[in-house]
Amino acid sequence: MGAVTQSRSLFKSTLGVLSVAKRTRGQILQPIGKKRSWGEIVARDFRVNWAVYVMALPVLAYFIIFNYIPMTGIIMAFQKFQIKKGIWGSKFVGLANFVRFFNSPYAWRLIRNTLLISLYGLAFSFPLPVVFALCLNEVRSTKFKRITQTISYMPYFISIVVVVAILFDFCKSEGVLTMLAKKFGWSGGALISAPQWFRTLYIGSNIWQHLGYNSIIFISALAAIDPQLYEAATIDGANRWQQTLHVTLPGIATTIVVLLILRLGSIMGVGYEKIILMYSPATYETGDVIASYVYRVGLEDADYSYSTAINLFNSLVNLLVLFLANQMSRRISDTSLW
């Protein structure tokens, strides 16, 4: 009980910091007599809330330095980039790099693999942390809850290299999982070199590794639900299942939707690290994704223009999906990022 209250107050105080700024600003800016110009308002606001501005500065700098300035490199996607000539001197080739990608024998396969891994990942690894958080929420024994939570976080701190090594060991031709699959009628040899199994193993190990960690935000959202609502529901005669349906889920719905939209925004963003550790020529068929291809073309082959073009395409699709998801969510549930 103590832990729950504690984390709840922590969550509230985090929200508090954000709302304090709003409140003070609101009070100060109450019109007192004559109308002020925009500049005056900002200057005055700065004088009063300068600490908040200073706090925002590093974040702003971060985005400008690491996200906006590098974006100028996008120009490379439309050039035949040569390192020596640089961005300003290389030849402009228009959409040639994009045409090359869509004509390449791998384009369709890469897009398909990226989308499928991402969609399956969304379908399986997104809901599970929610379910896990709900389950934990129902557990009465604090000690058991804490132990379970700690154990579930642990895999998150294991290096991906180690996770993949474990996976290889379990899925080689005499590995535990392969043996298990054989009991259920599998006859294709090592799971790790079977293209049919690649996505399952990729997503399955992801779930194992991230389940606990991803559930943290839901657990804190759960803690923020007003206990009075439960009391009221109990008085109305709701059993635990009904409480979950009518109090708990609506209580964390906003969190779920926001995270879902964010997740949709990276629908094409399957990272290359785990893929290049896991795939082999035998599993390129299902395992080679845009990110791993860009890695090969861009970093190993130094074909910067082409890899930039592919990645730009990737980002555009992401942006589009994010936008659509946000739009849809605003219509359906009134929750949206902007």
């Binding site: 390449s104 024998p105 791998y106 040899g189 070199s193 293209p195 082999s280 020529p281 035998a282 390129y284 068929e285 090969r296 073309v297 082959d301 074909d303």
Partner: peptide, 18 residues
């Protein structure tokens, strides 16, 4: 670059019977 990847992939598939 693409050819090499394809050859490596197909070598393995031919040998494994995929």
């Amino acid at each position: 670059t693409d050819i090499q990847t394809y050859v490596q992939e197909c070598n393995v598939k031919f040998i494994m019977g995929q």
